[in-house]
């Protein structure tokens, strides 16, 4: 996982996950070095569990929606307008996935400066998304829509707030990656933490595209 890859001077890229254990593996007893690396497999499994978490929330959303007609209720009929600040936020998150991927391509080519620049842009875009979401919340609050205003408010704020919390987590991970990148800890051979973080960031992006489509258009 990100953060376990210290000591790049003594360890090759594909054995780092073990070498930071308090004891070192014996030659020949190490893990299978073919195929996917341990941190990336770990991240994919973690994302699988996150998918199931959001599946639970989405199931609650659709079940609640099916039981409440009309949806949205009369009082909030025009509150959720997709062509507003939320569209800008959506565009920003999608762009940030691309800049994240540009960072990956850069570090694979050993282009450390390009890598740091693109990670920094991704990091800033993530923060901007969160600020825009907070601004959007403030508009909704002014319209009188809160967590407590019936099933519509409860599901909307739960889903988007949990997504926002995941963006926040992703921003922290990007911050760590940026810091470590500036410290020169990543190279073309040694950047599993970057790959794992980008997977998580894309996942957060995909969840938002689903949320945006379902909450605002469906």
């Amino acid at each position: 996982m990100p953060g376990t890859e210290g000591e790049p001077t003594t360890v090759t890229a594909d054995s780092h996950a073990l070498a930071t254990a308090e004891h070192t593996p014996i030659a020949g007893l190490a893990h299978d070095r073919r195929g996917i690396s341990n941190p990336i497999l770990g991240m994919i499994l973690f994302i699988t569990s996150e998918v199931m978490f959001f599946a639970g929330l989405f199931a609650a959303y659709f079940s609640t929606r099916a039981a409440n007609r009309p949806w949205p209720p009369e009082e909030f009929a025009d509150v959720l307008n997709p062509f507003s600040v939320i569209l800008v936020a959506t565009a920003i998150l999608i762009v940030s996935s691309f800049t994240c991927q540009l960072a990956i391509r850069a570090i694979r080519r050993e282009d450390r400066r390009g890598f740091i620049r693109n990670i920094a842009v991704t990091f800033v875009l993530g923060i901007v998304f969160l600020l825009l979401q907070a601004y959007d919340y403030s508009i909704l609050f002014e319209e009188g829509m809160t967590m407590g205003s019936g099933p519509f408010g409860t599901t909307y704020f739960t889903l988007t707030a949990f997504h926002g919390a995941h963006v926040f987590g992703g921003v922290i991970m990007l911050g760590v990656i940026l810091y470590r990148g500036m410290a020169g800890q990543f190279s073309a051979r040694h950047h599993d933490a970057v790959e794992a973080t980008s997977l998580y960031w894309h996942f957060v992006d995909v969840v938002w595209i689903l949320l945006f489509s379902i909450l605002y258009f469906l």
Partner: peptide
């Protein structure tokens, strides 16, 4: 565990929201 435990986490989160933040799940 990987596929099922996150689902109860979502149920517990919703229960917590219902109890503390006026949710109606």
């Amino acid at each position: 565990v990987l596929m099922a435990t996150p689902v109860i986490t979502s149920a517990l989160v919703m229960l917590f929201i219902d109890r503390n933040y006026g949710g109606t799940f």
